[in-house]
Each structure stands twice: as C-alpha cells, then as structure tokens.
Design a protein around this nucleic acid. Structure first.
Lengths: 197, 197
DNA sequence: CCGCTGACAGATTTCAATATCTGTCAGACA
DNA sequence: TGTCTGACAGATATTGAAATCTGTCAGCGG
C-alpha cells in the first residue's frame, strides 16, 4: 500500500529533528520541515497545533532517548550508594556527550530549559523520581538514612545542577571538573549514609 | 581648590554605575559616561584602557560591596554548622535582593558571569575561601569531618550554584524554593558533620 | 467525505544603508 | 609638562523596507 507516503506524526518528528540538527533552532522553520517531507506546511499544522508544540515533541523524544540508560540504572538492584554515584556520573556523561555530538539539538534543549518549558519540567521530575527510587532502595538496604525521600532526591538533583543543567555546559570541559565532581559526589554520599560505620 | 572637578577613577566608576543602572548593560556607552561627567570620552580612556575594563571595575566594586556581610560572617566565631548555614542563606538572600532591587546591575553581572570574566572568577574563589574558613573552624571545633577542606569548600559552593548563580535567578521566586533550600542545606550539613553524634 | 493544498493576514526576520560607538592620537590649553 | 579635547578609522548597532514565516481556512481532488 501507500504506507511510505502517509504523513504521520512520527515522520514529521523525524524530519523536524533532522531540520533542527541541520539548521539549528533559530533558523529552522515549519516550511523547512514541510519541504523535507515534500508536503505543504499546512499539512504539518494538521498534526501539530503550533511550531512550539512540534519543537516540544521533538525535545521530548530526544530527552526520553537520553533518559533510557538512567531508567535502567535506577531500576537495577545493586547497593544503593554505588548505584547512585553511577547514576549521577552517567547523567553527567550523557549530557556532556550530547554537547559534543549533537550541539544543535543541545542548543535547542538549552533554549527550552531557559524558557522553563513544560516538557523540560516533566523531564526533571522524572529524573528526581529515579533518584528517589535509588534513595528508597538505599533506605531499605539500611545504608541510607533519609527522612524525606522525595525532598532529599530533589536536593541531590539540585546539588548537581552544575553538571546537568545546560546553562553550565561551557564549564564541563574544564580540566579541574572531574575532581570537583568527585568532591561533590563524596560530600553528597556522606550526607545520605547512615551514621555509624 | 578644584577637587570637585578633578576626574578620578573613582568618579568615573560612580558615573558608570549610574549609567549602567539607568540604561542597562546593552545600551550604556562610554560616551554616555563621559557625558554624565561632562568630559570628552577620550578622557575616560585616559583612566581605563577599554570599555571592558571599566565594566569589570564597576562589577568588582559592586561584588565587593555585596560580599562584605559574608566576609564578616565567615570571620565570626560561633559554632561552624550554624555559621555555615547562616552564611549560605545570607549569600542566597543577598543575590535575591539584588535581583529585585538592582535588576540592571544584576543583568550586567549575569552577562559577566556568562562570559566567565576574570573578575567573576576571582569573586567565586573568594567565596570558596570564605566557606573553607568556616569548614576549618568546624574541623577545629570537632563538629566537621573533612579530609580536604579546599575541595570540600568548592563542593559546597558547587552544590549550591542553583541558588547563587544568576543563570538560575528566575527560579528563586518560586514558592517551593524555600523548602528546597532547606532540604539541600540539611543534606550538605549532614555530609560535613562528624559521624557519631 | 477526508486529507491536503495554497493563498492570505499579521507577526517576525533579514538585510543593507545609516548612524553611533570604540579606541587612538596629534595638538590645544593651562 | 601633563591633562584634556575632538576628529578620525574601523567596528558595531540601529533602522525601516522588503522578504519570510506562522497559523488559518476555503476549497480542490481523490
């Protein structure tokens, strides 16, 4: 059948991601997306109510993909302290890799983050939930002592903004960065552990 | 004598701060500063080699003034944990107050921070030194257990970026902010304390 | 019918001409 | 002599007209 030529939201997202990657957020237009799909731009508006919603949908896909390894880690079952450290380091590494490999999409993400868009808020909340999962595992294992898991998970997230918020991305390449991350993680893990070693 | 009409660096800084406050960083020009002082702009260049250096000097003055209460706090001699908490809360409050009271100067500071200007780096280093002072007091008092004071001070600073880096200023007004600060500070202080209470 | 097109109004962006600014310096002035 | 001025060149910013874009919708074609 004509499956190949049906205009689906999925195909539009694919094309939009390409266009964003190629032209960057500031240059990409809905007309470009339509041209890439060889349809009129009116057709795109049949599937997405606005350019902003299209942009958000692409960002969501992108963020969900980036988040997958972190979900797996959080769902794991090793000792919580090691898992939390691994989780945070992985989060930092993913972000840093994105900055290098996919700068245009990262710039898009930065712009979204600065607009405090809903999609980014949802993503952050998801991250905090993953941290909370590991924390409560740690409490169950008797290695963490946390009175309010949700609030503490948020605190861990906040304490590490410097290494996952795109506004600080330029600093991630600095040579003193790794040892600063080490010190920060050590401090946080000490703050979580039960109090008689 | 003609003291009142002598063109000093101090008078230029004063005028520049006024101009920056009135027009904002993006609109303020050296010509404006000269006009405010009723001299030619060439005269300004006699005292400051470039517009950037003038801007930096104003920012330094501004930052130093803002920093003064924090220096006093760090130099105090109460129990370190309370003092550190107070210090951090004061740092947050000062920044927040500046955002409201002096938005144009704050925007200038934001621009400087994003350029990673030397003057801002120096200011941050000074802040870290103040934290380090309190930490080593805490170690001396037997209430903190810290193996590398300098690195840990940096970690405390990094962990609190969200509440002192101007890039996050829009979030400081949110209603959930105070409780998130509470959770963060509690976590950090737990991470510093000695381990058998 | 149903999905798509393409013309349209109003908003936004581009672009090039114009104006202003930065930083320098020879010379005025005291 | 030392400070300040004002004209200048090159860089940067502003402006407004023209081009493009966003979002809508009446109507075409399958």
């Amino acid at each position: 059948m004509n499956e190949a030529v049906v205009l689906t939201p999925e195909r539009i997202l694919e094309a939009t991601e390409d266009v964003l990657r190629r032209f960057g957020l500031s240059k990409a237009t809905v007309v470009d997306v339509a041209r890439a799909l060889d349809v009129s731009h009116g057709s795109v508006y049949r599937h997405f109510p606005s350019k902003a919603s299209l942009r958000d949908a692409v960002a969501k896909r992108w963020l969900d993909r980036a988040n997958e390894p972190l979900c797996k880690l959080a769902a794991g079952d090793g000792p919580a302290p090691e898992r939390l450290e691994k989780w945070l380091r992985t989060a930092f590494t993913i972000k840093q890799k994105k900055v290098c490999d996919d700068p245009e999409m990262f710039a898009t993400y930065l712009a979204l983050a600065q607009d405090a868009r809903e999609v980014v808020e949802a993503y952050k909340d998801k991250q905090v939930d993953l941290i909370a999962k590991i924390l409560s595992d740690g409490v169950a294992q008797g290695v963490f002592e946390v009175d309010n898991v949700k609030a503490t998970a948020r605190a861990v997230f906040d304490a590490t903004v410097r290494y996952h918020h795109p506004a600080h991305a330029e600093e991630w390449a600095k040579p003193e960065c790794p040892s600063r991350i080490d010190a920060l993680l050590a401090l946080l893990l000490r703050g979580l552990r039960v109090c008689k070693p």
